[in-house]
Design a protein around this nucleic acid. Structure first.
Lengths: 230, 230
DNA sequence: CTATGATTGTCAAACTGACGACAGTTTACC
DNA sequence: GGTAAACTGTCGTCAGTTTGACAATCATAG
């Protein structure tokens, strides 16, 4: 694959930009491309891991199915985002389902090659430890979000997280629009479509957001942030 | 301190028992003791980390304060449990408050000494990576627990987690009793004391648990597990 | 430009859980 | 063994949510 283009993507990534050139180079050398069709499953919870990934183009939906059989969406991952690394380090099965939300191009670092790399160069470990720590911290934030907040606040926080890139460690955070249906949002905060609709329209009334078809546009970012923090 | 006694505690720990003798020995050599009075704070969210810990005796309450000023308890840590390692690996502030629930004795691995150890022996890294992965997986489980489950199920899962040791990686899981007030349980599933009381009494009716003063006794573990899974 | 599917807006009825209140019970400690 | 503090059991009220239903609107592919 085009090494230059790949390196460019790497550079945009919060975590990877801290990596020495050497690590980036070694990772690219062992990487492979993977193309997914819309709706295609990448892996299911419980699967054994064949590697870990970086989204190059498209969108990956991370979710799992709860005991009522309902799909609970954790997040969507967009280009520049790394995921699937946990199984690399403990050798245990996948923690979530991963589906391609649209046609998606992935960079894959195969398990075996990666283990070789680490064995040869254990000095690389600290960088990957920081990657795991970042994952834990984001996950803790997600738990905090759930706890004790009113639905209105949970919703506001979710929207902010989606705009700023929840698990998307990609730095480009310019866009003030998110493409997501109210039903999907409802899934994310474990609520009903109707309630989300009501709450969104309240935010619309307050000129904090603009609700469009399949899209939410943030008008007043500050006000949205205030809603979460107060 | 008494090295033999400390090693004995280490051995009981799920994560540490996988460590080579060499690592355990090195950790003990740099460790210090710390004694906390009942109610004393060990660290607050946002504090800089001076080290990480293992509970030797007593109980540590891990929590944080949400935006309404209400304390949200994440878990209690009992003897044999390690915690506070995240800040060790990314150098960032504490993610939670930690209070001594009663008089508590801790083993502390100071930050500086630990960093030295890792620098000298990078081959130890994989063991600590696994420690972080375990933390992530438990945290994901916690999120799953919250999402979409009825309160009755959340409660059942919590009780199971407390019995089996949620963040308590200590292996002794024999006990089928947990000492916890209904109010504390309510905090953990973000509910009210009254609701928890009602739900516990329903489980009592079904002969799944026995509710005592300040204590819950599990009668039918299988039934409890079934409640969570179905 | 039209048909079809996806998404949004809205309503009413049923339900759930929070909260305050208060009495009863257990424990710990002097 | 008595007293205070902590904990449990139970009520009714009230606000907020779910659910099902249905109409309106938007987007896209032929």
């Amino acid at each position: 694959m085009d090494i230059l283009e790949t390196e460019k993507l790497f550079i945009q990534n919060q975590w990877l930009e801290q990596l020495p050139q050497e690590v980036i180079h070694d990772l690219i050398l062992v990487s492979k491309m993977k193309l997914l069709q819309k709706g295609q499953i990448l892996h299911a919870k419980g699967d054994n891991a064949e590697g870990f990934y970086c989204v190059l183009e498209g969108k990956i939906r991370i979710s799992n199915v709860n005991s009522q059989g309902k799909e609970m969406v954790l997040t969507w991952l967009e280009s520049g985002t790394w995921f699937g690394e946990i199984s690399m380090f403990d050798g245990l099965p996948r923690t979530h389902d991963a589906h391609a939300e649209e046609v998606t191009k992935l960079l894959m670092i195969p398990n075996v090659a990666f283990q070789c790399l680490l064995t040869q160069k254990p000095q690389f470990y600290p960088y990957f430890m920081r990657m795991l720590c970042q994952r834990i911290r984001v996950t803790f934030d997600l738990i905090d979000e759930t706890g004790g907040l009113s639905l209105q606040r949970q919703l506001a926080r979710r929207i902010l997280l989606l705009v700023n890139g929840l698990h998307n460690t990609n730095k480009q955070t310019g866009s003030k629009r998110i493409s997501i249906s109210q039903e999907s949002l409802a899934h994310m905060i474990n609520s009903s479509r109707q309630t989300v609709n009501k709450l969104l329209n309240e935010l619309n009334q307050l000129n904090i957001i603009q609700v469009h078809y399949g899209t939410i546009e943030i008008i007043d970012m500050r006000a949205l942030e205030r809603l979460c923090e107060i």
